[in-house]
Amino acid sequence: MSLVQDIVAASLIVAGLLIMLVGSLGILRLPDFFTRTHAASKVDTTGIIFLLAGLAVFEGPTQAMGKLLITIAVIMLANPVAVHALARAAWNYGERPWSNGDDSGGRKSK
């Protein structure tokens, strides 16, 4: 376990945590379901991947690193599918996007 490896791993993990913090902030600050989903989907996925990449660097070239890399690939493929399922369900339910100059917070009746 070299110092460089530790520093890279710690930086990636801290970066991942900061990214996820930004994602949470986005969920609080953005105006409606769809814009919040932008924050929750892209930002959280990137955050988790940074975290897992940090853990993979921390592990070094072991079997656990391979498992972490496979996990990263699965998250990259599965997360957007889940997000799309949520967004589609919201749209089909009658949720409509907020746009500039709209005070209703995106909540429109069907």
Binding site: I19, V22, G23, L25, G26, R29, L30, P31, D32, F34, T35, H38, A39, K42, V43, T45, T46, G47, I49, M76, P97, W98, S99, N100
Partner: peptide, 28 residues
């Protein structure tokens, strides 16, 4: 390629979310 796109996307959302006035113009 997807990873690069995701980092760009995260950066964009981060800039929007952290700026004092949220500057978005959603459309379909």
């Amino acid at each position: 390629w997807l990873a690069v796109q995701m980092i760009k996307a995260t950066w964009q959302v981060a800039v929007i979310v952290v700026s004092p006035r949220i500057n978005i113009d959603p459309c379909l």
